[in-house]
């Protein structure tokens, strides 16, 4: 199969592989340990999947905001995003 038209790079391939791996882990977890929706700090009940979705979506916005408001070096933004994801998974 010729995938030239998709314009793959190793960076984006790694990114999508990581997302796919996360989804796979979440699927296995959901099958082995059925999840429980619980109310949290956002004032809504969230499941594990909801918290992952929120983490990924806010990670995107954290990076965009950092790029737009602070500067080119995105490593601090990634650190904030990971921290925020941890907070979401624990308390949301």
């Amino acid at each position: 199969m010729n995938l030239d038209w998709m314009g793959w790079t190793w960076q984006t391939a790694t990114f999508f592989a990581a997302i796919a791996a996360t989804l796979l882990v979440m699927t296995v977890l959901a099958a082995l340990r059925p999840e429980t929706a619980r109310p949290g700090m956002l004032g809504i009940t969230t499941t594990r999947g909801d918290r992952l979705f929120l983490s990924l979506l806010s990670a995107a916005f954290i990076h965009l905001a950092w790029l737009g408001l602070v500067g080119d070096d995105l490593r601090p933004a990634s650190a904030i995003a990971v921290l925020w994801a941890a907070i979401l998974f624990r308390w949301a």
Binding site: M6, G7, T9, T12, F16, L64, L67, L74
Partner: peptide, 30 residues
């Protein structure tokens, strides 16, 4: 996925791509 791939590169057609990293995003947000 293809759109994500394109967003970090530049192309002049002919399926030739050049890496641009976060360049387009930086321009877009400025």
């Amino acid at each position: 996925m293809t759109v994500v791939n394109y967003s970090v590169q530049d192309t002049f057609g002919n399926n030739q791509f050049f890496w641009n990293g976060i360049g387009w995003y930086k321009e877009l947000l400025d």
